[in-house]
Amino acid sequence: MNFINGALAIALLVLCNAAWSQSAPAGDAADGKRAYLADGCFICHGRAGQGGAMNYPAPPLAQMGYSAEVLKTILRAGLNDMPAYAEAVLSDKDVADIHAYLRVLPGRRDAKDIPLLNQ
């Protein structure tokens, strides 16, 4: 599955999971940080959510545009290098918490403000 097909699959899965979104638990960013580090999300995506690489690029997650429902859909199905995470190892609450944490991470800045990025 390449990125394009993966995105299409995710879009379909998101539609199918609309019902879950109605009852999705609210995330707690502090718990999400603990889960993000303890459950190893940072291994591929970085502690600051800056992204990384395994065999495919692992995309940045800080300030991610995905909703919690989409994140859950991706996690349950897996994508490219990323395995699927079953409820048994990553609960719905963990997913919601991680999503909340990713939303509070600082994310991108304007690259023009960083001279070292304009060499």
Binding site: A62, R108, R109, I114, Q119
Partner: peptide, 25 residues
């Protein structure tokens, strides 16, 4: 790529992007 490199620019542990750009400078 520049925009990606800004994420975690001041973080510790140090981002690999920051390390590489400090070296390049």
């Amino acid at each position: 790529s520049k925009s990606d490199a800004t994420i975690g620019w001041d973080a510790s542990p140090i981002s690999v992007a920051r390390m590489c750009m400090e070296l390049y400078a």
